[in-house]
C-alpha cells in the first residue's frame, strides 16, 4: 500500500496502465456504440430518444463521482499535506468538468423531444449547473492562487461546499417535484431498466470510465513532469 504513495512507482505504473487502457478502449467504444445506436430496443414511450441515455447517464455519473473523489482527496490533502494527492485532484477536475458539460448538453438534447423544452429551472438541472460552477471555481482556485497553503485551503473549502451540492443533486428528484425522472438504476432498490437496455448502458459506462482512466493517467503524468521540470530548473 505504501508504494502507492511513492511518486516514482505511481509514475511507472501509470505508463503501463496507460498502454493497456489505450489498447482496449477503441474496441470497447465501438462495441458500446453499436449496441447503443443500433442493437438496443426503442423505449415504448420515448421511442428512439431513449438512446441519449447511453451517453447522458454515464457522463452524469462520471461528473458526480469525480467531484466526490476530488472532495475526498482535497480533505485528505488539507489534513495530511500529501503532495501526490494534489496531482490526483488536479488531474481529475478538468475531466469532471468536461463530463458535467456533456451531461448538461445531452440532457438538454434529451429534454427537447421528451419534455418539449431545452431547459427548465428544475432542481436536478439547476443543481447540475451549480456543480459546473463549483468545478470552474475549483479549477480557478488551484490555477490562480499561487500560495500553495491558501490554494489547498480554497480547494478544500470549495470541494466541501460542492459535496453538499452533490447530495442535493442525488436527492433533488425525491425532495422536490421535478421534470427529471427519479433514478431508474439503484444499488439498494430494484432497477427498472430492462436488461436489453442495461447491456448497452453497462458497455458505455465501462467504455467512458476507461476513457476517463486514460485521460486521468495522461494528466497525472503531465502534472508530475511539470514538478520534475521545476526541480531541474533549480539544479
Amino acid at each position: 500500500m505504501i508504494k502507492f504513495l511513492n511518486p516514482s512507482y505511481v509514475f511507472k505504473l501509470s505508463g503501463k496502465l496507460l498502454n493497456i487502457f489505450k489498447t482496449f478502449l477503441p474496441p470497447l467504444v465501438i462495441v458500446g456504440l453499436i449496441f447503443s445506436l443500433f442493437l438496443s430496443p426503442k423505449d415504448y414511450i420515448q421511442g428512439d430518444s431513449v438512446r441519449i441515455m447511453y451517453v447522458h447517464v454515464p457522463s452524469a455519473w462520471i461528473s458526480l463521482i469525480s467531484f466526490v473523489a476530488i472532495s475526498f482527496f482535497c480533505i485528505l490533502n488539507f489534513l495530511f499535506k500529501l503532495k501526490n494527492v494534489t496531482l490526483i485532484y488536479k488531474s481529475l477536475a478538468p475531466i469532471g468538468l468536461t463530463f458535467n458539460i456533456i451531461a448538461i448538453i445531452t440532457g438538454s438534447l434529451w429534454g427537447q423531444p421528451t419534455w418539449g423544452t431545452w431547459w427548465a429551472w428544475d432542481a436536478r438541472l439547476t443543481s447540475m449547473l451549480v456543480l459546473m460552477f463549483f468545478y470552474i471555481a475549483f479549477i480557478f482556485s488551484y490555477k490562480f492562487i499561487t500560495n500553495s497553503e491558501r490554494s489547498i485551503k480554497a480547494c478544500a473549502f470549495i470541494s466541501v461546499l460542492g459535496l453538499i451540492n452533490v447530495i442535493i443533486i442525488k436527492y433533488s428528484v425525491e425532495w422536490w417535484s421535478t421534470l427529471h425522472q427519479p433514478s431508474s438504476i439503484s444499488l439498494t432498490n430494484e432497477t427498472t431498466v430492462h436488461f436489453s437496455m442495461l447491456v448497452p448502458l453497462g458497455l458505455m459506462v465501462f467504455a467512458l470510465f476507461m476513457y476517463v482512466a486514460v485521460i486521468f493517467l495522461m494528466k497525472y503524468r503531465i502534472e508530475t513532469i511539470r514538478i520534475k521540470k521545476k526541480s531541474i530548473k533549480k539544479i
Partner: peptide, 19 residues
Amino acid sequence: MNGYGIYVWSSFAFTFFIC
C-alpha cells in the same frame, strides 16, 4: 429514428468530439 435522429446523433456526436 422516427424524427428523434437529430437529437440522438447530435448527443453522440457532441460527446464524441468533446472526448
